[in-house]
Amino acid sequence: MPETPAPASATADAPVPGGLIRGELERELEQTDNRTRWLLSLPAILIILFFAAAPLLVMVVYSFLTPGDYGNVKWIFSTEGWVNVILQRDIFDDTLIWADAHLSIFWRSVKLSIVTTLLTLIFGVPTAWFVATRPKGKREFWLFLVTVPFWTNLLVRTIAIQELIRAEGVINNLLMALHIVDQPIQMMFTDFAIGFGMTYVYLPLMVLPVYAAVDKLDFRLVEAAHDLYAGRWTAFRRVILPMIKPGIIAGSILVFIPCLGAYVTPRVLGGGKNLMFGNLIELQFGAGRNWPLGAALSFTLMAIVMVALIYYVRLTSREEKTDV
């Protein structure tokens, strides 16, 4: 028994054999633990506040101001920036009409992002599977190959794609040399070019999380499925797919989000005509000199991402229902 009397605040709790007051030690340890945790995470919290939240705040404010004549903003409240996201004023009579240009850019962005995500899934899942099923010592080599493009500047990689698909590029020259076509196929400055480029650029972002999921997969479950009369495809659909789903979801999110906001790839491969969301925003802060609209567009992009994410997670996290 301790010599010192129990603290006054704890007199209500009867001391128990062993000298501990009920819950005292647990509380004490938890408090120290909490304090350490706060101290350790403080730098991260500060960075998040200053470098993520603060710019967002600035953008919210800007989106409700009036565009300045040479860029920048005038401190006059206006909702015009937000209105202009989907509507535009007729030059002559000020009536509001749909901003077709914007809507078609939104649509192209979403469409190309979905297509790119699907393509990276189609190419990425088998690749990840292949790498994860190599013998232990050989995987690093394949993973290295998958990540090599990451070590090169995005612009360089995009221009490499351009070299492949332009009219006098590698693919067209090859097709003509083989007399499969006698005129170069126009691939540059099309949606195809953007989708192709983005698939190439973002493929590793799909391969890596799926690889991690396949690596953790318990192959004895696959054997169990075969043992219970499942063929290859059914075993994949009923057992493997649900097990690697977290990796597929993570990969899809990692690909879809940067695709929606992609800037360099559509700029180089889509030319001036086939703009995407990122280019539209850039335009407002550059030649368009409409910062409030640019800010409003940025938030619209964020909103689309949020909605898509919530929908996607809902869609994929549906449980296998018990029907027997």
Binding site: E223, A224, Y229, T234, M243, V324
Partner: peptide, 19 residues
Amino acid sequence: ALFPHMSVANNIAFGLEML
């Protein structure tokens, strides 16, 4: 090697469904 993403009943039903 039970399927962790399925219920007890669905585990038992698996082989029958495959047949």
